[in-house]
Simulated scan of single mutants.
Amino acid sequence: MNKKFKTLLIILVIFSLGLYSFSLKKSNTVEALGVEPDNELLIYFRENFPNNEVLKCGYEDLNDDGRKDLLVIYNESKRKNAMLVVIDKEDGFQVSDHIPAPIENLKIEFKDIDKTGPIEIIISGSKDENFGYSIFRLIDDTELKDLFGEGMEDCC
Rank of each mutant, 00 (worst) to 15 (best):
K80I: 15
I14H: 08
E143G: 09
S21M: 09
K80P: 04
S23Y: 14
I123M: 09
L9C: 08
L147C: 07
M1A: 14
D64V: 12
I14Y: 05
I103T: 03
L144P: 06
I99P: 03
T142R: 12
D65W: 10
S126T: 13
E40C: 09
Y133S: 08
K115M: 15
P37F: 09
I119E: 07
V13M: 09
G151R: 01
F22K: 08
D140F: 09
K56L: 03
L9Y: 03
L41R: 01
E109W: 11
D88A: 04
L147P: 05
D38I: 09
L62M: 07
I113M: 11
P100H: 02
D64W: 05
D88V: 12
I119R: 00
T29Q: 07
I123F: 10
K4M: 12
D112H: 06
L42N: 00
L138I: 10
V30I: 14
V30S: 11
K78V: 15
L42K: 00
L12W: 03
G92Q: 08
P100S: 12
I11K: 03
C155P: 01
Y133D: 08
D141F: 12
D140S: 11
E36G: 13
K25N: 10
L144C: 04
N52Y: 05
C156M: 15
V95M: 14
Y20G: 10
E150L: 13
L8Y: 00
M83Y: 07
S126M: 11
G92V: 02
I87C: 10
L55G: 01
I121T: 04
F49V: 00
T29S: 05
Y20R: 00
S21G: 14
I10A: 11
L62V: 01
E90G: 14
Q94W: 04
Y59A: 02
I99S: 02
E90I: 06
P100E: 11
I135V: 11
F22E: 07
V35T: 04
I43N: 09
N75H: 15
L147R: 04
D114G: 01
D128G: 05
G66L: 02
L138G: 10
Q94F: 08
L70D: 00
I113Y: 04
N52L: 03
L19H: 03
R137V: 07
L12I: 13
P118T: 08
S16P: 07
E76P: 01
K56C: 02
N75W: 05
S23T: 05
T29F: 04
N51M: 08
L138C: 06
H98V: 10
I108P: 00
V72S: 06
S77E: 12
L19A: 07
G66F: 05
K89F: 15
L12C: 06
Q94A: 13
I135N: 08
Q94K: 15
K56F: 11
F110Q: 00
S134V: 05
K26F: 06
P102A: 13
D128K: 14
A82P: 01
E143Y: 06
D88C: 13
E143W: 13
L84R: 06
L19Q: 06
P50I: 02
K3E: 09
S126R: 03
I123A: 07
I99M: 11
A82T: 10
I123C: 01
T142Y: 09
K80W: 14
K3L: 15
F45G: 00
D141C: 02
